[in-house]
Design a protein around this nucleic acid. Structure first.
Length: 294
DNA sequence: TCCCAGGGGCATC
DNA sequence: GATGCCCATGGG
């Protein structure tokens, strides 16, 4: 008998929107998305769990495929954090509806939530992979990285992977990544960041101890390969930092171009102007703007 | 063919 | 601090 953990939906939560985001017709190697459910391998404390997740009567059902948990509380925390289930979206929708160009987002994508990458190392490496290449190719590179260096379990003859650890990637030779079609620079950035993490010089916890968000961004900007876009993206995806805007993002510009008639060459200041009324909800506006692209 | 993708480093002025 | 160039591949 497999263990099923149940998590009631908060108001304005759409599991279908979660599925849409996790799929987006891209080939993500870290989960499998079906029409009404998904499979994902996670590391929770010292355990590796294969999760099957679906919805039933406004409840999220999380079935553990490969083991049993004595205490489901940490798993519930993990899922609620991952899918940002604890946030009250009403204030955000109120702000959206005050903007005639953006009001439709609140209805069309109601219940869409910020889906995070809880692990900071994964968030940083993924954002570096995604720099300046199309997402199809980015997912291809990620798959090669994960399948070559990630831990996995086998269930019913299928492999389910975790993102590679800093310890493993810190040891990988640049040439090995080059052979997987990573550029010379990205190979250097990724192994460099892996060495920072494995050497204890950077961690989610250390970053969280800094005094404020600006200090966290400045700290990340010192890392080779991390610029303004990457720092903001990683903090948004890993810390759910609501004030983060990945300036320069091509998709963000594209959405603002079509919905707010901003020019292609829109400056940082012009983008900030659109975001000004959304103080404290910037990351959500970014996420909804990306959502509007497809 | 050319340009652009969920950018960033680096040289140069 | 602003600008130009390079990186790697694939899709339009």
């Amino acid at each position: 008998m497999k263990q099923v953990v149940k998590i009631p939906f908060p108001d304005f939560f759409s599991f279908q929107e979660c599925l849409w985001f996790l799929d987006r017709s891209y080939d993500d190697c870290l989960h499998e998305v079906y029409s009404d459910s998904l499979l994902k391998l996670i590391r929770l404390q010292e355990q590796i769990l294969l999760l099957h997740i679906w919805e039933e009567d406004s409840t999220l059902c999380v079935e553990i495929q490969n083991t049993n948990l004595e205490d489901p509380a940490p798993l519930i925390d993990y899922i609620q954090d991952w899918l940002d289930m604890s946030r009250d979206l009403r204030p955000f929708y109120k702000l959206l509806k005050a903007d005639k160009d953006l009001a439709f987002l609140a209805d069309k994508y109601v219940g869409f939530r910020l889906i995070t990458i809880p692990d900071l190392f994964e968030a940083l490496v993924w954002s570096i992979i995604g720099q300046q290449i199309n997402l199809t190719f980015a997912y291809k590179l990620k798959r090669r990285l994960v399948e070559n260096f990630g831990e996995y379990i086998t269930c019913e003859e299928k492999k389910y992977y975790l993102f590679p650890s800093p310890e493993v990637l810190a040891q990988v030779q640049i040439e090995a990544l080059r052979a997987l079609q990573f550029s010379q620079r990205k190979s250097e950035y990724i192994t460099g960041i892996a060495q920072l993490f494995s050497g204890g010089k950077l961690s989610h916890q250390q970053l969280a101890q800094l005094e404020d968000e600006e200090a966290m961004i400045q700290s990340l900007l010192k890392i080779r390969g991390v610029g303004e876009w990457t720092a903001n993206y990683a903090l948004m995806k890993s810390f759910k930092m609501m004030r983060c805007i990945p300036f320069g993002d091509a998709g963000l510009k594209k959405a603002l171009e079509s919905l707010k008639a901003l020019p292609k060459s829109a400056s940082k200041e012009e983008v900030q102007k659109v975001f000004a009324p959304f103080k404290g909800w910037e990351a959500y506006l970014v996420f909804y703007l990306w959502r509007s692209l497809s």
